[in-house]
């Protein structure tokens, strides 16, 4: 758990202070905490609500609305498989299957070593490369099983 203990709240507090504790910066704060911790824990949401004097339901409304936020713990890296129309007809479902078996998780799940969380999206805007996957901010076109092993090895 990234959010246990004083140190994790210290991070949240630092982010809140950066924005001067302004109510109107709630989304920005959530984005920054999401970025640093890779997810939003219930405790951190409660802490943010308290510090900004925003009712907890208002915080959850935002945190559950945007796809950028995750309320479950995520791995250190995001593996995103595109299931958009173009990638779909170019074999994305089988690719997803392979990757999901490699990582030992279904879409939305996190590998047991905490390294990867597997997600799907609908179109990444580079359909010509399809079927395409992304690991964090790098894109890979239709990786074979051995490509994939090699690529994964680069992420700790």
């Amino acid at each position: 758990m990234t959010d246990d203990g004083a140190s994790a709240f210290a991070l949240v507090d630092k982010i809140i202070n950066r924005y001067g504790g302004e109510r109107g910066t709630l989304i920005q704060i959530l984005l920054d905490v999401q970025k640093e911790n890779r997810w939003l824990s219930g405790e951190s949401l409660e802490h943010i609500a308290e510090r900004l004097h925003v009712p907890l339901p208002r915080v959850y409304e935002i945190a559950t609305f945007y796809k950028a936020f995750s309320l479950t713990e995520r791995g250190r890296h995001l593996v995103t498989v595109c299931l958009g129309t173009a990638c779909h007809v170019r074999g994305a479902p089988t690719l997803l299957d392979r990757i999901s078996r490699k990582l030992g998780v279904k879409s939305g799940g996190t590998s047991s070593d905490g390294r990867f969380t597997l997600l799907t999206v609908n179109c990444m805007g580079c359909c010509a490369l399809g079927p395409v996957i992304a690991i964090d901010e790098s894109y890979f076109s239709n990786p074979s099983n051995s490509d994939f092993d090699r690529i994964l090895g680069q992420y700790k």
Binding site: P55, L56, P57, R58, Y60, E61, T64, F65
Partner: peptide, 17 residues
């Protein structure tokens, strides 16, 4: 402030928070 909307689209619902 007992309740709020959670989720979006077809998953949107009212929940106690």
């Amino acid at each position: 402030d007992c309740i709020g909307f959670v989720g979006r689209g077809v998953h949107r619902e009212v929940a106690w928070i």
